[in-house]
Design a protein around this nucleic acid. Structure first.
Length: 197
DNA sequence: TAGGCCATCTGGTCCT
DNA sequence: AGGACCAGATGGCCTA
């Protein structure tokens, strides 16, 4: 199950198509990652996109920004070899970043209850289940706290928003450990002692 | 075999 | 200037 394609990707010559820098593969290997797949990723790989997409400089990539099509990529006049090294380092960082992201996904998987324990949840399933789980918990919490609400007010979206706001306040003011305080406060709801504001 | 899912590479943009 | 973030592209593995 875990033998996904990573380790067997075909090696390619990513830079050979652009500025024709033959000595691609001898660029210094960026820090030896021990993550899965690192072995293969140490080899030079790439895609043919450089060829296929050519000078595609105006994709509105980057954060949220609508287009910014007028901006041009910084041109650092470094040698091809230098660029290769920087690319490899960049790839390694990106790999590490994705590994961290996947670790977070894994933590999320373990945090949410799901039916089939033997089947690994996909990312989209994980996010969807997490969303539903949070909503369910919120509903339960609001139900528990409804006795503390002002007369006539029912657990509603507004209440949920207040709950969220309260939680965010805790995070901003007290940092991580506030979560346990917040949870104990919520627990207080069930005892009828806590009072959301 | 097609489609889903994933890891990785890549280059553009944003942020520090 | 360099790292982080992002999204598109690509190709491998797995399952129905």
């Amino acid at each position: 199950m875990k033998s996904k394609g990573k380790a067997s990707k075909t090696s390619r010559e990513p830079w050979a198509d652009q500025d024709h820098e033959p000595e691609t593969s001898e660029a210094s290997e960026p820090g030896s990652s021990e993550q899965e797949g690192s072995e293969s990723s140490l080899r030079i790989r790439g895609s043919w996109r450089g060829v296929l997409r050519g000078g595609d400089c105006e994709r509105g990539g980057g954060r949220g920004g609508p287009t910014h099509g007028t901006r041009r990529r910084r041109r650092t006049h470094s040698s091809g070899k230098e660029r290769n090294v920087r690319r490899l380092e960049s790839n390694e960082r990106e790999r590490q970043r994705m590994h961290k992201l996947n670790n977070a996904f894994q933590a999320l998987r373990e945090a949410i209850p799901h039916v089939s324990l033997d089947k690994k949840l996909s990312k989209i399933e994980t996010l969807t289940l997490a969303e539903n789980y949070i909503k369910s918990l919120t509903t339960i919490i609001l139900g528990m706290s409804s006795t503390c609400l002002p007369a006539g007010e029912t657990p509603s979206q507004a209440s949920a928003a207040r709950l969220l706001h309260r939680y965010q306040q805790h995070l901003e003011e007290d940092g991580e450990e506030s979560l346990s305080q917040f949870l104990s406060q919520i627990h207080g709801f069930s005892q009828g002692s806590g009072k959301p504001s």
